[in-house]
Nucleic acid binder design. Structure first.
Length: 570
DNA sequence: GCCGTTTTCGGCCCGACTGTTTTCAGTCG
């Protein structure tokens, strides 16, 4: 994909222009870059059709620049800018608390144009005597530089969520706190989290802030004020806490949930209607006309209230204005899990433990789908073992009344596109999941053919973790997803939304793409022990980010209705 | 440089916190 390269160029232009003190243009370049980032499609498709200007924030001039990058692989304008500003000066902007103005001063006065030179100057205490800097800012910049070198990577949703929930319950125990809510990208359930935003309603802000900034786990207090404080935890995770009044709660929540583009756009909308929107409310002149809830604010803006997971400024505002947003799948609407592993293969719980846990959650069914024989590392089952397992399921099912264990398998798609079990074996299963577990680096054409071949087998029901990405381990496999979705549609196959927090596969933008093909999905936890069944929350949030309603997700159906979706279940 | 049920020209979100200052500029979200 060319997108990443183009984004980076546009961001670099923005940084340089900003350091040069150019007004407004940096914002324009950043906006265009962000919109390309969230495009979810190869920008060369827009280029080929001559439709670059259809991308929001891309106008005549930026479109021309993108043309040049695609055609020649470089951009004269950027080369020219780089000559005006030292190559690495913009890397100073990566440091929190250093912005364009201060970076410019550092360069003008001390010829600092790289992080290395900055560090040296800090150690020699040359910074504190500069105009606008002092002892404290020198110390602060040094600390943040060290932090950055340690690497402040974004944290995966599945890791940040439990930390945030624990913080929330700690704060809830304070009697001064009336309401504690998680906002920000965590509320939007973005797949990675930069920091945790918590919003509180209280009339005793001081006491809460004192507690918050002195918690055991706090390694540094970044800011502390009566309405807003920021701390860094030992895990390097930044947590921001804001305290607002009851009447402002909805406005504050709307603002702190974001994302940034969504907030800005709603504020612009407010302006157009003659209002002013801030985190304190929606105002007409000095009079607050809404602010207690998000719903009343959006209502005054003459639009539906988009659910947090889709507030990314990727079309939700336009849809909400036209009253075209469908209700997203509710978190409590899942009736069963199609993807779990028992100790027959690489799971650690017995089939009984898994099904009892499922029953306990309130599920009506659970599909236990262990690995097939080629997955040796995962102790995949050979035919004999599989048949034994099916017998055991039959026995176990006798002990349940309104609950059923479905006979499943996660069958490897072999390198040649064949499945790892014969049709005769597959026919004995209720549900067949097919997935790729080997030769991840195949070229796109070959991989697409491999998967398409597997999906043309009539026994297959679900394509599990379709792109096989693993955060920090391997990227998405090379496939033409559009083609795969067409094959799914033709053969009545459901792509999976895998809930494992290191997978989250399909991802949000791909789910939206699949929806356009008229596909339905199965959400699966890929649980390897009974406790992991609760990870379904991650999958549902991902489905919501992909704009799915209840009807788009097969496992919102009751046990009785499953026959409508799976050919081997009656 | 982009964009338009206020505009094809003239706007471009809005407020808190910090440090360095004597009233504010810079940065962040």
């Amino acid at each position: 994909m060319k997108n990443l390269e183009i984004e980076e160029i546009l961001y670099e232009i923005a940084d340089i222009l900003e350091i040069q003190g150019v007004e407004f243009k940096p914002g324009t370049y950043r906006k265009a870059a962000r919109n390309i980032e969230t495009l979810g499609e190869d920008i060369r498709e827009f280029y080929k059709k001559g439709k670059l200007k259809d991308i929001p924030g891309v106008g005549e001039h930026i479109a021309k620049k993108i043309d040049e990058i695609i055609e020649t692989g470089k951009l004269d304008y950027l080369e020219k800018l780089r000559k005006e500003i030292p190559r690495h000066l913009s890397e100073l902007l990566q440091i929190q608390s250093l912005g364009p103005k201060k970076a410019k001063i550092l360069y003008d006065k001390l010829k600092i144009d790289s992080l290395a030179k900055l560090e040296k100057a800090l150690e020699q205490h040359k910074i504190q005597s500069l105009e606008g800097f002092g002892e404290k800012s020198e110390q602060d910049i040094l600390e943040r530089l060290k932090l950055m070198k340690k690497g402040q990577e974004r944290m995966l949703l599945g890791l940040a969520l439990p930390i945030a929930k624990e913080l929330k319950s700690k704060l809830e125990k304070l009697k001064q706190a009336k309401k504690i809510v998680i906002a920000g990208s965590l509320r939007r359930k973005k797949e990675t989290i930069g920091d945790v935003d918590i919003l509180a309603v209280s009339a005793h802000a001081d006491e809460i802030m004192d507690y918050f900034t002195s918690m055991d786990d706090v390694s540094k207090v970044l800011a502390k004020g009566p309405t807003k404080s920021s701390v860094l935890l030992n895990s390097n995770l930044q947590v921001d806490l804001r305290i607002v009044k009851e009447d402002e709660f909805g406005a504050a929540l709307q603002y702190f949930t974001g994302n940034k583009d969504h907030s800005i756009k709603t504020r612009l909308l407010a302006n157009k209607l003659g209002y002013k929107l801030s985190e304190y409310g929606l105002f007409k002149g000095k009079k607050r006309i809404a602010g207690k809830t998000e719903q009343e604010i959006y209502k005054k803006l003459k639009m539906q209230c988009p659910e947090p997971e889709i507030r990314e400024n990727t079309g939700e505002i336009e849809a909400a204005l036209e009253n075209k947003l469908q209700k997203l799948i509710p978190y409590n609407s899942i009736k069963g899990d199609f993807h779990t592993h028992s100790n027959y293969s690489d799971g650690s719980s017995t089939m009984k433990e898994i099904s009892d846990a499922a029953l306990n959650i309130g599920y009506e069914y659970i599909c236990i789908a262990d690995h097939s024989k080629s997955s040796r590392i995962a102790h995949g089952l050979d035919e004999t073992k599989l048949l034994k397992k099916l017998d055991e399921i039959k026995e176990l099912n006798k002990s349940y009344k309104k609950f059923k264990i479905l006979k499943g398998a996660e069958v490897d798609i072999l390198k040649n596109g064949e499945l790892d079990y014969s049709d005769d074996i597959l026919k004995k299963l209720d549900i067949v999941l097919a997935s790729v577990h080997s030769s991840f680096k195949m070229p796109e054409k070959e991989m697409t053919e491999r998967i398409s071949a597997a999906l043309s087998n009539k026994q297959v029901d679900i394509l599990a973790h379709p792109t096989s990405r693993m955060f920090g381990q391997r990227p998405e496999i090379n496939i033409d997803l559009e083609k795969i979705f067409e094959v799914c549609k033709k053969n009545k196959i459901y792509p999976e939304i895998n809930s494992t927090y290191t997978r989250m596969d399909l991802k949000d933008t791909n789910i939206r793409k699949a929806l356009e093909h008229g596909l339905k999905f199965c959400i699966g936890t890929d649980a390897h022990n009974a406790n992991q069944l609760e990870n379904i929350e991650i999958g549902v949030s991902q489905a919501r980010r992909g704009w799915c309603g209840k009807k788009d997700i097969v496992n919102t159906s009751s046990l009785k209705e499953l026959g409508k979706f799976f050919r081997k279940i009656s």
